[in-house]
């Protein structure tokens, strides 16, 4: 599994005057789940595309610093080569359908055919990916006939089948209804359990808090912090970066209930309820 190392990354899109990423440095350990948060235009998507090699190899533009995925320096490798190591899923599931395949099964094979994977191996990988994403029942359906959530799971399956070491999900649920969103999160959870490194941009802070090992907070193209969800969402200046803490954190903050061991507010329902239960127990002991 590959470690990701980003050193002093700077990037400016062609025909623009402002940096899209400004001196970003951090590293990601193999198997980690990293959430990326920040307000619009903070550089979240650009950062994802820099890790996948689309920046600068697809967009061109001015680039400085270094992104290493394992032993590969991303800038020096073509995107069609990089996709074997880093897979990326975009916001709009509809635009990720190739349009050249008539069934979901064939659609998932698209990347594998391009990679020259032998047919027997291809079938094995497609079956595994479909099973993992729970879309086997749609295998003979036309990709355009799927719902948003199903289509997004198909897009993830298409990437999974290519067996990358890192999967980047750039707001994969932003255009989905609540059911579709839940389907995608369940799928992502399964991938995380398999030990795949996941980097996810998401506006749903409850989900980021629930799944992430660490959270990257970006603001105005710069890295503000990378830390555990508890530490990030307990920051007093979080609002100034246009980011809202999860609802459980907000409640606990309102009640001034911090976890004494970590010095942070709870970020998930489980953490908050554990804290409440402990407080109730302590209270009843005192009485």
């Amino acid at each position: 599994m590959a470690r990701i190392e980003i050193e002093h990354l700077k990037y400016q899109y062609p025909a623009t005057t402002k940096l899209a990423l400004d001196d970003i440095s951090f590293s990601v350990e193999p198997g980690e789940f990293i959430g990326i948060i920040g307000k619009n235009e903070s550089g979240k998507s650009t950062l994802c595309q820099a890790i996948a090699g689309l920046v600068p190899n697809f967009y061109k533009g001015s680039y400085g610093g270094k992104v290493m995925v394992g032993e590969i320096e991303v800038k020096t490798v073509e995107v069609n080569e990089m996709c074997k190591t880093v897979g990326i899923v975009f916001q709009n599931p509809f635009n990720q359908v190739t349009g050249s395949k008539l069934t979901v099964y064939e659609e998932i094979s698209f990347g594998l055919e391009n990679m020259g994977i032998p047919k027997v191996e291809m079938i094995k990988r497609i079956d595994e990916a479909m099973e993992l994403l729970d879309i086997i029942k749609y295998k003979d359906r036309n990709p355009f006939d799927l719902s948003g959530g199903q289509m997004q799971r198909m897009a993830i399956a298409s990437i999974i089948a290519m067996q990358p070491e890192v999967i980047i999900l750039d707001e994969p649920t932003s255009q989905l209804d609540p059911q579709g969103r839940e389907e995608v999160f369940q799928a992502v959870q399964k991938l995380s359990k398999k030990g795949i490194t996941i980097i996810m941009v998401e506006h749903n802070m409850e989900k980021i808090a629930q799944y992430s090992d660490r959270v990257v907070l970006l603001n105005d193209t710069k890295l503000v912090a990378i830390d555990t969800p508890q530490k990030i969402f307990s920051r007093d200046d979080l609002d100034s970066f246009g980011v809202e803490a999860p609802v459980f954190t907000k409640i606990c903050r309102g009640l001034h209930l911090k976890n004494e061991e970590t010095g942070c507010y709870p970020v998930t329902l489980e953490e908050a309820s554990r804290l409440f239960q402990r407080l109730v127990k302590e209270e009843s002991h005192n009485e």
């Binding site: 996948a52 689309l54 697809f58 073509e78 995107v79 069609n80 080569e81 996709c83 074997k84 897979g87 990326i88 975009f90 635009n95 990720q96 190739t98 698209f110 990347g111 391009n114 990679m115 020259g116 897009a155 298409s158 990437i159 290519m162």
Partner: peptide, 11 residues
């Protein structure tokens, strides 16, 4: 972009 990350231009 989606095609590119699925090796469309692979040689």
């Amino acid at each position: 972009l989606a095609l590119e990350v699925r090796g469309f231009n692979s040689t």
